[in-house]
């Protein structure tokens, strides 16, 4: 299921703006990698280059290489639509489809891609909701609108929706920033469970969260406004939070900067 991501020499641009500069890293399968850093350091942009969501914004482009095991995500014959089916994504704000029921939300990825068959969809919906720790809360109201759930439930619904298409990798862009502490805890528990199956990358503003959920942590920063974001270092989370190699990382971790 899970695959390794190998990034080398990656640059991303929005129109004329150089958003991130020369990033290389390896993201291990079946583990959680956290991206931390100050606002605007390019960590979310970098995350979006990993499933080619970056390109959705007009004028955006990427240079460099992203390998998913042996496949080059930016290879000439690769369709971004196929990439996004392999690399799923969960967003900052829960965004269930408002016109769809809970069931249809989870099945959306398959249904919208033309998969039919009630029995099969039923199975996938149940498995995905169980996988997202939401099944017991919603099993009696699968036909109700997804937008009627609480924020934390909605976010787990979005996670269920993302894993229903059986991705290799799950990208999470600050998945808890719009949630209360109890919902956040539920998502963090879920992340710990999901890493047995998926390669998980999470962007977070919250350093405690990074320390709690991740195995490895990458620290990004920018030299100043208008400068591109850079990767400072990536290492085991325990190391980053105790004795990082770089002074900049230590300053950020200890709150002297950012």
């Amino acid at each position: 299921m899970a695959k390794r991501i190998e990034v080398s020499g990656l640059h991303a641009y929005y129109g004329g703006v150089h958003a991130i500069e020369d990033i290389s890293m390896t993201i291990e399968p079946r583990s959680v990698t956290a991206f931390i850093g100050p606002s605007g350091c390019g960590k979310s942009t970098f995350l979006r280059t990993l499933n080619r969501m970056h390109e959705v914004i007009p004028g955006a482009r990427v240079e460099g290489k992203v390998m998913l095991d042996d496949d080059d995500l930016y290879g000439p014959s690769v369709d971004p639509v196929a990439v996004r089916r392999t690399v799923g994504m969960v967003f900052q704000r829960p965004n269930p489809f408002p016109t769809m029921s809970i069931y249809d939300n989870v099945a959306a990825g398959l249904k919208l891609n033309g998969v039919r068959g009630k029995g099969k969809l039923d199975d996938v919906v149940e498995e995905s909701l169980r996988g997202a720790n939401l099944w017991n809360e919603v099993k009696d109201r699968l036909g109700r609108p997804g937008a009627g759930l609480s924020g934390g439930q909605q976010q787990r619904l979005c996670i269920a929706r993302a894993i229903a298409v059986q991705p290799q990798v799950l990208l999470m862009d600050e998945p808890c920033s719009a949630l209360d502490p109890i919902s956040t805890l539920a998502i963090e528990d879920l992340i710990a469970k999901l890493k047995d199956q998926y390669t998980i990358v999470i962007v977070t503003h919250n350093m405690q969260q990074a320390a709690r959920v991740s195995d490895r942590t990458a620290f990004f920063t920018i030299a100043g406004t208008g400068k591109p974001g850079k990767l400072i270092e990536i290492d085991d989370t325990s190391k980053i939070f105790t004795k990082p190699e770089q002074q900049a990382t230590e300053d950020y971790i200890t709150g002297r900067f950012g």
């Binding site: 990439v83 089916r85 919208l112 891609n113 929706r161 993302a162």
Partner: peptide, 8 residues
């Protein structure tokens, strides 16, 4: 974005 991210 949610839909694109599902590979739709």
């Amino acid at each position: 974005e949610a839909s694109y991210a599902l590979g739709v």
